[in-house]
Every structure is written in structure tokens, then in C-alpha cells.
Amino acid sequence: MIPLSWYMALAAILFSIGVYGFLTRRNIIIMFLSAELMLNGVNLNLVAMSYYLESMRGQVFTFFIITVAAAEAAIGLGIAICLYRNRRTVYVDEVNQLKG
């Protein structure tokens, strides 16, 4: 039997990898992909706890998170396409129109 804390450690590391990608990459699409990694880290946590605490609540939550992730991907990538169409760039540090 694998202890619950191992799953939680893996989820924490996966979440941190997502944060790392989100904060360092320039490409907005890879930033969204990093956000998906973060969501997956949380999902792993919820499923593991659902198994170890003998409750279905965590799996229901994971189901909703996957739904919201799909919506987020659709909207976010729509915004990325808009950005590319209007500014011809997908690099977040080149989008500085609002900067004084």
C-alpha cells in the first residue's frame, strides 16, 4: 500500500512544475498548457484523497475540474487566436500596449 503522502508529494511537484512553466515561458499557449499541468496536480490530489478517505466527493470534484479545464482551454485558445490575429504575436512580453 502506497502512503497517501506520496501521491500528495507527486501532486505538489506537478503543481510546482506548472507554476514554473506559467511564470517563465513566453509563449501564451505553453502558459495555458502549464495551467493544465497545475489542474492535473490538483486532480491527482483529489482522486488520491477520495480513494484513501473512502469518499466519492473527490472524484466528483475532479470531474467538475476537468469540465472547467475544457472550458478554460476553449476560451483561452480563442483569446490566443484573437491575440495572434490582431498583434501577430503569441509572446506575452511583446503584448505591452497597456504599459505606460
Partner: peptide, 13 residues
């Protein structure tokens, strides 16, 4: 690939 302040992101992560 990385923004100019990537070291800060690495530090935070």
C-alpha cells in the same frame, strides 16, 4: 523561450 525575468519564476516555483 523564457521571459527575461525567468530566474524569478524559477525561484518562486
Amino acid at each position: 523561450r523564457f521571459v527575461s525575468s525567468a530566474w524569478l519564476g524559477r525561484l518562486i516555483a
